[in-house]
Design a protein around this nucleic acid. Structure first.
Lengths: 142, 142
DNA sequence: AAATTACAGTTACGGATGTAACTATATCGA
DNA sequence: TCGATATAGTTACATCCGTAACTGTAATTT
């Protein structure tokens, strides 16, 4: 029987729907401002926050698929927003680092991010916002 | 300064990450069992739960893009899991309805859905699970 | 009624995706 | 040391996706 099953209470649906709302709401910003994809923004943000990393380290930090990272790195490099330097000890590995232009773009999007965060926080209220963050963080270990 | 911005506390990231965990976790089930895409599963589930609908009504219920619905309907129809009947009064419109095979598939996935829900609920605990559902529902109005 | 506008649904196109296969390099084991 | 295995990263392919343009039908305006 379907009686036990309610689409509008089904967590994968709720999650996905809410995620689209929140995640795509911010995507409009970096897409309109810089014509970036989500993968590109994620890679930029990760390098901006953590400094120089290898592609594999970006995969670890973000959970992005390695082909997404590879393509995003290529396209950010095309914009001259990052440099790559081959590792001397292991020539398979490249150290990826934002250029100053890349850092500027990151700063600009950070500010937009903080503003966007505030918008959602105002909507939910501080308590619910924190509750939501904590629950989502907890789900990472599912 | 980036100091205000913490990637791992940024809601679009948290949201997206948690959503991938939960939503793709269940996707493995319908993908492995029936080779369905997420759009197809959503359309199947919507028709299963609400009975006969038009494509536009499915768009309203699910929030899916109309091209996704169009393609999903086509492909589910190919499997003989749904019938379409042209509306006599408005010949642009088709009434879409699951066949008995479609209903069987839906039932089978409902059971999997209930089991999956239980798995997540056990992980989070009843109280947090409800809290999360409520917060996600609230976000629909963002 | 003819012309215009609105709507349901499909499709062409270019771009983004994941899988799997690949290249190049490094490491391990005999 | 050399053959096998593992790893970093890229690419070919098929698929999926959203935008915009389209088809066919209905409703509205004149």
């Amino acid at each position: 029987m379907k009686s036990e099953f309610d689409l509008h209470r089904f967590l994968p649906f709720l999650m996905h729907h809410a995620s689209e709302k929140v995640s795509l709401g911010f995507r409009d910003i970096y897409r309109d401002r810089y014509r970036m994809t989500r993968s590109e923004w994620r890679v930029l943000a990760t390098l901006g926050q953590y400094g120089a990393l290898t592609a594999t380290e970006i995969v670890t930090h973000t959970g992005l698929h390695k082909t997404k990272v590879s393509r995003a790195v290529f396209s950010i490099e095309q914009r001259r927003w990052l440099r790559r330097a081959q590792n001397e000890n292991d020539r398979r590995v490249h150290r990826l680092e934002l250029t100053s232009q890349g850092q500027s773009a990151f700063q600009s999007l950070c500010e937009a991010g903080v503003a966007y965060d505030k918008k959602v926080r105002d909507f939910l209220g501080d308590a619910d916002f924190k509750r939501l963050s904590d629950l989502l963080t907890k789900l990472n270990d599912l």
